Amino acid sequence: MKFVAFERAKQGTGASRRLRNSGKTPGIVYGGTGEAKLIELDHNALWHALKKEAFHASILDMELNGQTSKVLLRDYQMHPYKQLVLHIDFQRVEANTTLHMKVPLHYSGEQDSEAVKTDKCLVNHVVTEIEVACIPANLPEFINVDLSGLKKGVSLHVNDITLPNGVKVITHGKPNPVLVSVTAPAEEVEAAPAAPAAEAPAKGKGKK
């Protein structure tokens, strides 16, 4: 994906407020061999870009001052209740730098699996993204995970999936995290009808 940014000179709360009022979003780009630069982007274009998965998980081409550089979205701040992007951060990436990024998992095929089709099991996507380490050229936009081989009572782990070439999963000490769990359907238990309450004897005044 490609986007256009413009260099900005002024900084501070007042300058950022004026930028937002004019339909711009303040930001910064840093990292790599260049110095950090203050930038601004068209808010409407940025708003629509943030709705796209690829904008969050892939290398972006940023055009600034007529030059294009490779960057990653690193952070952005939203207004508490308005549809307004307050600030955005990008990091420059270089070809030989190892990146650590979270990549979405795209699951498919579970409806054709034995677990779902035959045994009517419940499939739970425990994890929807994983952190990977790779150079920029090998960074996948997403990772496809085929669930057509799921079986009753057998969970899918990280070691069960095929990763793109040059991509390594970062598990932060967990040996083999579960990605998808498979459980048998819960049995419907009909509650026994409650016994009617015994009627209390009518109270009355006894004769002496």
Rank of each mutant, 00 (worst) to 15 (best):
A5L: 07
R8C: 08
Q11C: 01
Q11N: 08
T13C: 02
R17Y: 04
R20V: 10
R20L: 13
Y30H: 05
N44W: 04
H48Y: 12
A49Y: 13
K52T: 10
K52V: 05
F55Y: 13
A57N: 15
S58R: 01
I59G: 00
M62F: 02
E63H: 11
E63L: 15
G66S: 09
Q67M: 12
T68P: 06
S69K: 10
V71T: 00
R74F: 00
D75Q: 11
D75S: 12
D75E: 13
Y76N: 00
Y76S: 00
M78Y: 06
Y81E: 01
Q83Y: 12
L86V: 10
H87N: 14
I88W: 04
D89Q: 03
Q91T: 01
R92F: 07
N96P: 05
N96Y: 06
T97S: 07
T97N: 04
K102T: 10
V103M: 04
P104R: 08
Y107L: 08
Y107T: 09
S108C: 04
G109C: 09
E110T: 08
Q111K: 14
D112V: 07
S113K: 12
V116H: 11
T118E: 07
K120Y: 06
C121V: 09
V123Y: 03
V126W: 11
V127Q: 13
T128N: 14
I130D: 03
A133V: 10
I135C: 02
I135S: 00
L139G: 00
F142C: 05
N144H: 13
V145M: 01
V145G: 01
D146T: 11
L147G: 07
S148N: 12
G149N: 14
K151D: 02
K152H: 08
I161H: 09
P164W: 10
V167A: 04
I170M: 12
T171D: 01
G173L: 07
V178I: 14
L179M: 09
V182W: 06
T183Y: 05
A184C: 05
P185L: 06
A186R: 15
A186E: 12
E188K: 15
V189D: 04
A191G: 01
P193Y: 08
P193W: 07
A194E: 15
P196K: 12
K205R: 15
G206M: 12
